[in-house]
């Protein structure tokens, strides 16, 4: 069984604890001048998304998680599962709501996502950093108003609420940064 020593800890490392898969969010090495060192670690449970703090005595080991990140195309949801497909093999994977809860509003069919699989089951999906989406609802555009920074609320085709400049019209396609939810430009 593969293990990781605390000296291998770094952000993104995935391991198993009490039967659940975790990822390391932040790892801090703490050592008094002479004496026992500790790794103070912020970890995220990949099933529940919960973030907790944990401290290991340096030199202890954790069990490595058999976690893979695979590029997949989003297909559709059936109300219970969100379906993704590996484009090369056409193999389909059904993700439970917990896996997509955080990014549901960025899910657009045919778009590519990074899906994290644990023992073959999707745990989470990460949208591309930039995505182009159609505006489905917003107030009419105000022509000629180019005031810097003035925005209005808009809804895009995936249901996400964003802020767009006043001149953007319903039906237009805009480019959005999914990490911040910010409008970047007209597509």
């Amino acid at each position: 069984m593969a293990t990781y020593n605390t000296s291998e800890f770094k952000s993104g490392l995935k391991f198993i604890m009490d039967g659940d898969p975790y990822t390391i969010v932040e790892n801090e090495f703490v050592k008094p001048g002479k004496g026992q060192a500790f790794n103070r670690v912020r970890i995220r449970n990949l099933k529940t998304g919960r973030v907790t703090d944990k401290t290991w005595k340096s030199g202890e080991k954790v069990e490595a998680a058999d976690v893979m990140e695979v590029d997949m195309e989003y297909l559709y949801d059936d109300g219970e599962f969100w379906h993704f497909m590996e484009p090369d093999t056409f193999e389909q994977h059904a993700a439970p709501e917990t896996a997509v809860a955080d990014i549901k509003h960025w899910l657009k069919p045919q778009e590519k996502y990074i899906v994290t699989l644990w023992n073959g089951t999707p745990l989470s999906a990460t949208p591309p950093n930039f995505i182009e989406l159609k505006i489905t609802d917003c107030d009419p555009g105000v022509q000629g108003n180019t005031a810097q920074g003035a925005t209005k609320p808009a809804t895009v085709e995936t249901g996400a609420q964003i802020k767009v400049p006043l001149f953007v019209e319903e039906g237009e396609v805009v480019k959005i940064d999914t990490r911040t939810g910010e409008y970047l430009s007209r597509a």
């Binding site: 703490v30 050592k31 004496g35 026992q36």
Partner: peptide
Amino acid sequence: SLSRQDLLDALLSH
């Protein structure tokens, strides 16, 4: 698994 010194070190550093 912590010895006496480990416990003291943990309290001091944390």
